[in-house]
Every structure is written in C-alpha cells, then in structure tokens.
Computed example of a mutant assay.
Amino acid sequence: MLYGKEHVDRYRATDGKEGHDWNDTTVLLLTTTGRTSGRKYTTPLIYQKHGDDYVIVASKGGDPQAPDWYRNLEADPDVEVQVMGDRFPARARTASPEEKPELWRLMTATWPQYDEYQAKTDREIPVVVLERAAG
C-alpha cells in the first residue's frame, strides 16, 4: 500500500498513473509551504471534484490536532496541486458552515471513515476547498 513519501514519488514519476487511484478512491498531491520552515511539503490526500474545485478533508484520522498541511495552508493559502499529470497553483480555503454539510456528504461517500474520524475527536474536522488560481 502506498502512502507518504513513496506515494508522492511514484505519483509524480508516473503523472498519477500509480497513486491516483487508491483504496477505491482518488488521491491528489497537495504542496504547502511550511509555516515556520518555509520549506515545501507535499501530502497525498483523498479528494473529490465539486464543480471546478477540488475538495479535501483535514481529518488526520480523527487526531485532536489538525494535520500539519492544514496548519500550513492557514498561514499561507497559496498551494500547489497535482491531479494525475495536471499540476497547478491553487488557493485553499476552509469550507463555510453553509457549504460544509454538502461537501462532507461528498467526501464521506468516497471515504466513509471520515464519519468515524469525526466521532473520535472533539475537533471540528475542516473540509478544504482548493480553487485553481487564475492565470
């Protein structure tokens, strides 16, 4: 099973032919800038399309603390996204309370464990919308 650095390396090397389809769902690569280090970090994340946008979930398996990638994009919402061979700049934002129910249903339809993760933590798990940057 791929995940982590090996997943990122194989995904990049094959333009997603290896790594995009994973455990009956789909994965993109999200690159954020470290909020303290300034370094680039790439994370493979389950996603779904919603209109022109891409939707991801900052679950960290139900951990009480948000994942580092989410904390990074809170500090700098300008990110890079790769979906298959398509690499593009995007702006990340947390879904509004009005948007979240629909987007949560979209994401739990592809990865039902998100409901389990939310039940494990008091933290409100954010849904993140990635909007392709104009240009």
Rank of each mutant, 00 (worst) to 15 (best):
A109I: 02
K17Q: 14
T14D: 07
P64R: 03
M84Y: 04
K120F: 02
Y117E: 00
E98I: 11
N72K: 06
A92M: 09
A109E: 15
A109L: 00
Q118K: 05
E98K: 15
E102C: 03
M84I: 00
V57P: 12
A109K: 11
D86M: 07
Y3H: 13
G19D: 06
R132W: 04
G61K: 02
W111R: 12
L28S: 01
E74G: 05
V57R: 01
A95W: 02
T42A: 07
R87I: 00
E98V: 15
P112S: 05
V83G: 04
N72E: 04
R132S: 07
G16S: 04
L73T: 11
R93I: 01
P97Y: 12
V57G: 14
K40T: 09
K49G: 01
G16C: 08
T110S: 08
K120V: 01
P126K: 12
L130I: 10
T32V: 10
K60A: 14
Y70A: 14
T42W: 07
Y114L: 09
Q65Y: 00
D78G: 08
I46T: 14
A119I: 03
V79M: 12
Y70M: 10
S59V: 14
T31A: 06
L45I: 00
E116C: 00
D15G: 11
D122N: 11
P126F: 08
F88D: 12
R71G: 06
V128I: 13
R10G: 10
T108L: 06
D68M: 13
E116K: 13
D78Y: 13
H7Q: 07
V55I: 15
A133L: 10
G51L: 03
P89E: 14
D76I: 06
Q65M: 04
D63I: 01
L30Q: 12
Y114H: 02
V81F: 03
E98Q: 14
T36D: 10
G135M: 04
G16P: 10
E18T: 15
G16T: 06
P101F: 07
D15P: 15
W111Y: 14
K49D: 02
Q118S: 05
V81W: 04
T33W: 02
W69P: 05
V55M: 04
E74Y: 02
A75G: 03
S59H: 09
L73I: 13
L106V: 08
T108E: 03
K49M: 05
Y114P: 08
F88N: 10
E6F: 02
V128E: 06
S37P: 01
V55K: 03
M84H: 03
D24Y: 04
